[in-house]
């Protein structure tokens, strides 16, 4: 069976410019570019998230989305009436408004890194109040999607150049390691490979 490509034509038009700028800035703080190597920005995480939100994930196509909607426990998972696409859209609008109110009219993407971290920590802790939007649920989803985009197969738009897999030393879905059994302490010589192949030949 051929895996379905979720990066579909038209996905690039899902975000507004403001939304794209927010996701780009926020994911770059969640997995920053630092001395361990490339971060979410180089990996194309924004592209990954935009593509996912434009598809079935964004529409909550496989989720139970009828009421009742109540606050659940952490183990019960996502409980909001909003689809992921609606949640991103509403939350980004609310967070940018919050930033304008508290940071001299600047939106999230225009804040410096420390200010951005402060806002993100606030979201993680359930502050500030964002009206209808539950900030903790949004942060949880944003963080999870960032990690997914950084570490998923490059065919889905993120992990470009295998930067995620290189960071954690994952060679990709290879199957035959018999040649390397017993060769301890040596670096694995093969480059990472994705479902569509490796860099350079694809």
């Amino acid at each position: 069976m051929v895996p379905a490509l979720t990066r579909r034509p038209g996905a690039d038009g899902h975000f507004t410019d403001a939304e794209r700028a927010f996701v780009d800035a926020a994911t770059a703080r969640i997995i920053p570019t630092d001395d361990t190597g490339a971060g979410a920005r180089e990996a194309g995480v924004t592209q990954f998230i935009e593509s996912q939100l434009a598809g079935d994930f964004g529409d909550a196509a496989r989720w139970y989305m009828q009421g009742p909607f109540k606050d659940g426990t952490d183990e019960q998972g996502y409980q909001l009436p909003l689809t992921p696409a609606q949640l991103y859209s509403a939350a980004i609008r609310a967070v940018d408004q919050h930033c304008r109110d508290f940071f001299g009219g600047r939106v999230f993407a225009d804040l410096d890194a420390e200010e951005q971290d402060e806002v993100l920590r606030g979201l993680e802790a359930g502050e500030p109040e964002l009206g209808d939007v539950d900030s903790r649920s949004f942060f949880k989803m944003l963080r999870a999607n960032t990690v997914e985009g950084f570490l998923s197969d490059p065919m889905y738009g993120g992990n470009q150049g295998f930067v995620g897999w290189r960071l954690i030393g994952f060679p990709g879905p290879r199957y035959d390691y018999t040649r390397f059994i017993g060769r301890h302490g040596e670096p694995f010589p093969l480059p990472p490979v994705g479902i569509l192949g490796r860099d350079g030949f694809i």
Binding site: R174, Y175, D176, T178, R179, L190, V193, G197, R198, F201
Partner: peptide, 18 residues
């Protein structure tokens, strides 16, 4: 070299590196 890379990436799961 390209052929070998494609072999290593796509075929060795069943046909083995050897």
């Amino acid at each position: 070299a390209e052929g070998e890379a494609l072999f290593v990436d796509n075929c060795t799961g069943c046909h083995l590196m050897s």
